[in-house]
Design a protein around this nucleic acid. Sequence first.
DNA 1: CGCCAGATTGACACGGCTCAAGCGGTGTGG
DNA 2: CCACACCGCTTGAGCCGTGTCAATCTGGCG
Lengths: 286, 286
Amino acid sequence: MIAANDGRELPTPSALQHTRLWISAGLEAADHDALFSACDDIRAVNAGTDLLRQRTTTNDLYILLEGWAARYRLMEDGSRHIRALALPGDICNVDALRFDALDYGVMMLTSGTVAVLPRHRADVLLAARPAIGYAFWSLALAENSILAEWSASIGRRSAQQRVAHFLCELLVRLTAIGEADGFAFDLPLTQEQIGDSLGLTGVHVNRTVNSLRLMGLVTVHHRRVTIHGWSELSALCGFRPAYLRLETIDEQFARTIPLTGAYGKTRLERAARPAFNPSATSAPGG
Amino acid sequence: MIAANDGRELPTPSALQHTRLWISAGLEAADHDALFSACDDIRAVNAGTDLLRQRTTTNDLYILLEGWAARYRLMEDGSRHIRALALPGDICNVDALRFDALDYGVMMLTSGTVAVLPRHRADVLLAARPAIGYAFWSLALAENSILAEWSASIGRRSAQQRVAHFLCELLVRLTAIGEADGFAFDLPLTQEQIGDSLGLTGVHVNRTVNSLRLMGLVTVHHRRVTIHGWSELSALCGFRPAYLRLETIDEQFARTIPLTGAYGKTRLERAARPAFNPSATSAPGG
DNA sequence: CGCCAGATTGACACGGCTCAAGCGGTGTGG
DNA sequence: CCACACCGCTTGAGCCGTGTCAATCTGGCG
């Protein structure tokens, strides 16, 4: 971190250079300075802190620089759903670019650092520096894609597949930002929080992780995950990382994780279930 | 529809003036002309047509002018998940603004009309006409919000609540674009497709709809839904329309649907389950 | 040492799935 | 105008994956 002219600590460009925010748009040092100069505040936050509360309003974007955050929704019956995990370089609430009413909350899962960017300054910034606009909107769309995959996972995969897919996703995302250690990484969520992310109960997450362990695919100890059978694990859940929209940094981890191993392995094509719409194989334009 | 100078049929501004695309940004006639002049094609499509296929690539945005479309994902085991329904004024694949690889497909559920906008022209258009940029990105964020609500619904609500919530959402969205008839609307999905949207099987959707009918809340006949007990139905599933991000056109349907009736009714606050993070009630910054 | 959050395990209940049969409406061809 | 086929809706029986509830265990921390 370096000091801004008003005394605030600014992150160095190198601190973010491996994050999605940076790499997706090829931001330069000038963009970096413009972005963080526009921020109201760059602050350290403790684990457990609520950055934003559901059913409040905000005009600030929270850019996560260090640590993990969860976007969550409290349901009417008191249960909880975690709709997204934010890692360094993600924006906790991109939709603040347009909407101020929050139908979700954001909490820190670990201690970390966030930059707070007021919307009115964000608007100016995105107009003045197209690369930043490009990066922000790319983030929004990538998040959309991840959300959609989670939704499909919850709706159509078994508990075992969901957990496996969750772990595969995190390994790839963490590798992309340089926070994985080979096939191992720290996962700072309780089993109940994992369950809230996957539409399961904490108890069932426990049993499911145990079943993956018995298969020799994964071990978890003290919130540290190690994947022993990457190709089996990714094949088990049909993990295909395209939805993460990390193509721009593919090279960086393609050397580390044999991603291609998961491609094309899992098309089981149940004969009993016909293709989506077999009668409409003609080109659009009917 | 009116004819463009190259003979293509262009939609009249009035045909779209009630859609989200238009109202969210207050587009003007000049924006309208610029948008549709930039389109490669405006074409009629039949029900069942696949506009886009999963695992292909495209550089075109499909703007839905008339009819319903579904964004869907085929899973590895042959099952299907419908991740979003597009109604007139929605964009079938906003993420084509950045990404060309499709991890989903888009199919028409009814016959309709789509405008095809190549990305390179979209880029120019969004830069040249900020109101259109504003509208497109608002659509992307609103879609994100809806997706998140679906995801929470699938993960944390019962089948009955999911179906109820689905019907509530559609009534509000259709009312907003003038396609509902009081508390009745046409729902051009098979029960299996509804199940694919909600993470259920078609068979169970059938039983669930039947249970709502027995409660006197809903009737369905020949793909036409009538909601008889709006306040009970919306309270049953905790429906709160904020996530639809329709605030700019709230007035239009607040007169028709007593939306406020659903607010605050369903906070059951299970005593057995404490608040998300009771220990962290301090303001961010800790 | 005592406390507490989280992980683990067991017993049991139940919601939603599977498989299967029958029904009804609609379109098509004779 | 009828016969037939097809697709989607409806209903039943039985199963199984996941939830619920509760007890116990573990490790970290004051």
